[in-house]
Design a protein around this nucleic acid. Structure first.
Lengths: 213, 213
DNA sequence: CTACCTTTGTGAAGTATTTCACAAGCTCAA
DNA sequence: TTGAGCTTGTGAAATACTTCACAAAGGTAG
């Protein structure tokens, strides 16, 4: 199968979000045009994105909402549960663990870790903060495949290496630093400073910039 | 001036981060190769990115760390202070307000707003949570140009319209929904669900995916 | 059953971004 | 001053992504 662009995957995720909403409302079909408007893209883009994975629509009618929802879930790998560990019991970690969409989409937080003795053992949402010293062992035993890093930059690479050794295959990094992973591990980084600086740039060099989502 | 790609701006931001580090350590020059390795990109990319804005390097030697740092700050619009309001006094808002890099880079949080009566008036970091009803008036009076939205999806569009009316020109949106802004307003969205689903996709369709930063 | 309207799926065209590759410039050493 | 060794800056090539545009279907009304 052809390589799928990252931008395409992000849009699929967005289509899914709005299809679920339409499905809840009982809408039976949606055209590429309708989806495009909801998601802020173009009809051609919607059709092209979906066409990488099959022919889900009916000409003259549009896409069957409920079925397409199921297809997208499958494509994105959301039919199964993914075990996730959160490393770093700070504010970002808390925001993530709190986030409802998380569980809804099949991401099950099996543990929260920190290296601060004041936090270890404290209750934290439904869980209890564990010692980061146990992270590697736990990840291996529970076969966790996804780790979310919400820790200071200096500790990030070290934790990455530890969880990768333990079998983690995907990492979502909130530390504002570059980290490196072996080729078989997927990595996404979210960097708030970068986003804000992007806005600063846009404001500074304003000359009819259109804002991008 | 030619339009600068979003990806380029993000990399500039990253170069800046590492240049500051090198500068602190007293390193005088850095080659495109060194920067590329630190940032996980290629030397050609570094040179091309910088070349959009001028010739900062010396052939045979590399880029002068301290000067380039200053140039990048200027390019990114970080020489001035930007007033920022945070809308939504939840976990994400807290994570942002807490974030040191924020102030360091010249983003000054002038107010935190919420619509929950239990939160309004409560201390929150160094500030006090204000009533969202006052948001529009305050933004206008203080001439705030940047708003960060950390509120539920349903409220997002409405708040956007309010702050845009009040003069905001850039929005960083953490609500997992599509929002629309007039052409003169810049918008960036961070969507954790989307990132995680991207990882789920990568794991599901694993076939030698290289992890992207 | 036919005519007409709508909307998909998709090659081809058009843009945008990244990578290549190399002339030109700077430093240093002798 | 010259030559060797690096490293930049940049058109051109390659690749990636988006948009176009239209034939092929499905639906519906009469």
């Amino acid at each position: 199968m052809k390589r799928i662009a990252d931008s395409t995957v992000r849009r699929l995720s967005m289509y899914l979000r709005y299809l679920e909403e339409l499905d809840t409302r009982g809408q039976k079909t949606a055209s590429s045009d309708e989806l495009a408007q909801l998601c802020g893209t173009t009809p051609a883009q919607v059709r092209k994105d979906l066409s990488f994975f099959g022919s889900f629509g009916k000409r003259g009618l549009g896409y069957p909402v409920h079925e397409l929802t199921a297809h997208l879930r499958e494509i994105l790998g959301l039919e199964r549960e993914w075990k996730v560990v959160i490393v770093g019991a700070g504010k970002i970690g808390a925001a993530l663990a709190n986030y409802r969409g998380f569980k809804q989409r099949g991401f099950q937080v099996v543990g929260v870790y920190d290296n601060n003795p004041d936090k270890i053992g404290q209750p934290w949402g439904e869980a209890i903060v564990r010692d980061i010293a146990d992270l590697e062992r736990d990840v291996e035993r529970e076969q966790v495949l996804i780790a979310v890093l919400a820790i200071p930059s200096d500790d990030a690479q070290q934790v990455v290496e530890s969880v990768v050794r333990a079998g983690v295959r995907a990492i979502l990094n909130f530390a504002p630093t570059q980290i490196s992973v072996p080729p078989h591990v997927s990595l996404k980084s979210v960097n708030m400073a970068m986003e804000l600086e992007g806005l600063s740039f846009a404001l500074t060099n304003a000359a009819g910039n259109k804002g991008a989502a």
